[in-house]
Amino acid sequence: MVWGEYPAEFNPKVHGPYDPARFYGKKDTPFTQVRLRELGSWLARRNKTPRAATQAVSRAWWRWQQKYLLPEKMGVAPFIQIAVGSMAFFYLINYTKYKAHRTQKYHW
């Protein structure tokens, strides 16, 4: 497997046209249906290589796009989601600075 190839599990004869949002590997229990005591084995079964992580993020990005951004009558939701997400992200990366406000009695 090199750059620019489809996943090894993808077989156009069986799967038809390639959908970047879809996972073509062996199906496992969805995360939302995993019981707490099975969580360890479920996590142990995950493929934790950087490549797999990248693929997972890419799939998630495509799935989000297909859900909110690409429909014909898309609304304002994806933009709000991006705004809220970036707000949270920048709050987190600046959190050390904001934390300092706690100790100050008078805020400028």
């Binding site: 799967h15 879809r22 009558k73």
Partner: peptide, 25 residues
């Protein structure tokens, strides 16, 4: 094509309406 699995891997279609959200997002 008899190998084609249309049940588990249907052809992706562009939806008309986006997924529903509450409170805007």
């Amino acid at each position: 094509n008899e190998e084609r699995n249309e049940v588990d891997f249907p052809r992706t279609k562009r939806p008309i309406h986006p997924a529903p959200v509450r409170m805007g997002f």
